[in-house]
């Protein structure tokens, strides 16, 4: 049996191996996704928000909610890689331990691997693979504070932004970031002081948007409170969603293709211009050339 068949038969070790192949963008991974098809039926739900808001705890509570109705749940939990060493500490699973031994739940921790501006291409591939392997929903947890998380909404059909009391300051400063990508806003840790103030701040912030204001849900993830309501909103989107989700998927496909093409172009460019870069860098460092002029020259060279 080949890897694709094993994955389709529900072999978890094969799936784990497959995820490694696609995460690392190997030729075998590309072939695997081609053999399986990239799914396209699972509801992909992005869960983002500031550090410590309770995203992982909420993911765990959501897994429980879906398991109660026999869904098979896939989770990708992304944490940042150190830009200096490339290392990463992936600790989201610690909040999801209750599901470790459940064979209908598959959790994979991924490092962001220095992807500029958000998610590594491997994360999109991994979501495709879980989707193709029959997991539905597929949950994607990422840390977000206002910039890079625009990416998560491109990887997901639905984006849930999780905030907690104390993130009020963040709300002030993130008008253009987190709030705009939210399809659903969650006020988690609603048992803590400040939930009302946060809700008021969110209300007035979302009213300023031109788009339809996202629903706001309060949760206490540690106790599972508010989770049925959140799940109902998600189910509603999945059910009503054919059109909404199709539009989102088109956008996602576009962004992915563009990113892949950009990477390809950049790689080709630097492969042929690596030396010219070095020469120009020396000139810029010595003050003989401005960086802007150096870039023009490199691009000029390319056109020749």
């Amino acid at each position: 049996m080949n890897l694709a068949e094993s994955i389709q038969q529900g072999d978890r070790r094969a799936l784990a191996r497959g995820l490694t192949l696609v995460e690392n963008e190997t030729p075998e991974g590309v072939a695997l996704l081609a053999a399986l098809g990239s799914g396209g039926t699972a509801h992909r739900i992005g869960i983002t928000g500031p550090p410590g808001a309770g995203k992982s705890t909420l993911v765990s509570a959501l897994i429980a909610a879906w398991r109660a109705t026999n869904a098979t749940v896939g989770v990708l939990a992304v944490d940042p890689s150190s830009p200096f060493t490339g290392g990463a500490l992936l600790g989201d699973r610690i909040r999801m331990l209750a599901h470790t031994a459940d064979e209908h739940v598959f959790i994979r921790s991924l490092a962001s691997r220095g992807a500029l501006g958000g998610l590594a291409a491997g994360v999109y591939n991994a979501a495709d693979l879980l989707d193709a392997a029959g997991f539905d929903p597929v949950l994607l947890e990422t840390v977000g504070v206002g910039q890079g998380e625009v990416e998560i909404c491109r990887a997901a059909d639905t984006t849930v932004v999780v905030l907690a009391p104390g993130s009020g300051d963040i709300v002030q400063g993130m008008k253009a970031g987190l709030l705009e990508i939210a399809d659903i806003l969650v006020i988690n840790q609603a048992d803590r002081e400040g939930a009302d103030a946060l809700e008021a701040a969110l209300q007035s912030a979302v009213e300023l948007r031109d788009a339809v204001a996202p629903p706001i849900v309060r949760t206490i993830a540690t106790r599972g409170e508010g989770v049925p309501e959140l799940r109902a909103l998600l189910d509603e989107r999945a059910a009503a969603g054919a059109e909404v989700l199709a539009a989102r998927r088109l956008e996602r496909a576009r962004a992915r293709l563009r990113a892949a093409a950009d990477r390809h172009r950049a790689e080709a460019f630097w492969t042929s211009h690596g030396e010219a870069l070095e020469t120009a860098a020396v000139e810029v460092a010595e003050g003989r050339l401005s960086a802007a002029a150096a870039v023009s020259r490199l691009l000029e060279d390319e056109r020749r």
Partner: peptide, 26 residues
């Protein structure tokens, strides 16, 4: 992590069954 590894950390009181299930998925 500082040595450049991707470290999956699952904390306290892990049973052997949990450890190997995690090792497999990851």
């Amino acid at each position: 992590r500082d040595a450049g590894f991707e470290v999956i950390y699952t904390g306290l009181r892990q049973t052997p069954e949990m450890i190997v299930a995690t090792a497999l998925q990851e």
